[in-house]
Write a protein that binds this DNA or RNA. Structure first.
Lengths: 221, 221
DNA sequence: AAACTATTCAATAAATTTGTTGAATAGTTT
DNA sequence: AAACTATTCAACAAATTTATTGAATAGTTT
């Protein structure tokens, strides 16, 4: 095996992984699986594709070693195979926000819809949380919260927010977080809270970013 | 623009970037450009493809915003557009080594050829360097060394090594580094040095990793 | 301005990727 | 063991990616 064969083999192998991450639906699936394991039909419905199509994309991810499989009852749950999968996805996401003006504009335009334009970065929030200065609200679906959440965060899924406003104080600064920078639950929440007179902002990043930074998390066994 | 359109737009944009990184030749080009800007013909020859083909791949990388262009005289030099491009590539590389047994085996098999099987990690070496305990040799081509190298490293391009052995001491521990984990210059060097009775090992990672960690570097203006 | 040169372009065929359809399957429940 | 169900498979057509060829081009030298 000469030098060229070696390089062909190595770069060829690695390109299988990046090929697996080179489809919009599959990226979206990875972004979703960073929250918790999901079954095929749930994945299909969250990403607005057919079940058969979702299954096929999941096969691709599985062959590339990016996801693992786990059956419980009738359902087959897919999970990310490694923390490193999220790391690569986050790198890609950050590179995209830096380099692609279209991606940046799409995000800004959407934030604008929800009048949620001064989001705070994860480090800034980590500082404040350590000093106990803010109320953290997790507006993701409850099952994602149960699977893992930021320590001391309060779970108020976005569709329950309007009915649970009396639990919140208008004195404290409120930070809302959700799945990540492309998830709009937090933006919707900030819009609702601001209209009701609360002092609320969203965290740009999501729970998986917090966890990947090794900031303190909790989960229910 | 509803939620689904937004997601399609964002994930679609980001997939353009990963698509650009999803071809073995293009990955190899990125790996090469992490050393220094390179002209099209050089890139073609380093990666064993035709000039026209290299040019086409470079167009793809350029459209995705991953590389930038710079003319000097007759030549057009391509560079990585951002540190983040290397970050994503490194993430992919590490994920590949972790997940793909084929990639891992290819690397091991090749190291074995050169009897260079106890390479040292970058952190370990950083520690030793700070204590001045080792001799660092950069065996990449001289122009890459000039463009940037580890502080206090000695430049001995691999093809000059045999003729410059008298510059080295058999008492000091020698660490050799090159472009990165898929570059074999350092392995070749370790084989030569070991045969001659030197105490030599390679660093697993390459110069771009060192630089990206913000460890001390030098370059000639 | 003419000569020169590295790079890009255009056209092509082969290979791969993609989403859809509806049927088949593997595995769990009862 | 029979019934049931989420998931996978197989077959297809459309779209995209890829490498090759040789000509065209943009820009620098002299």
């Amino acid at each position: 095996m000469d030098k060229r064969d070696f390089k062909n083999e190595v770069y060829g192998e690695l390109s299988k992984i990046s090929k697996a991450m080179s489809n919009p639906h599959r990226i979206e699936i990875i972004d979703l699986l960073a929250q918790r394991p999901y079954a095929v039909e749930e994945i299909a419905s969250c990403t607005s594709i057919s079940t058969a199509n979702a299954s096929q994309h999941l096969q691709v991810l599985k062959s590339a070693g990016l996801v693992t499989v786990n059956r419980r009852g009738y359902f087959i749950y897919y999970s990310l195979a490694s923390e490193k999968v999220f790391d690569v996805w986050r790198g890609l996401r950050e590179l995209g926000i830096e380099q692609s003006s279209k991606a940046r504009e799409a995000v800004d335009r959407f934030r604008m819809n929800y009048h949620s334009l001064q989001p705070a970065g994860i480090d800034e929030i980590y500082e404040k949380v350590s000093k106990g200065k803010i109320t953290l609200i997790d507006v993701r679906p409850e099952d994602e919260f149960i699977y893992g959440h930021i320590q001391n965060a309060l779970s108020i899924p976005i569709d329950k927010l309007v009915s649970r406003l009396e639990e919140l104080s208008k004195e404290m600064e409120i930070i809302v977080y959700c799945r990540g920078p492309f998830c709009i639950y937090a933006d919707q929440a900030v819009e609702i809270l601001t209209k009701e007179g609360f002092n609320a902002n969203r965290m740009i990043e999501g729970y998986p970013d917090w966890k990947s930074r090794n900031f303190p998390v909790s989960f229910s066994a």
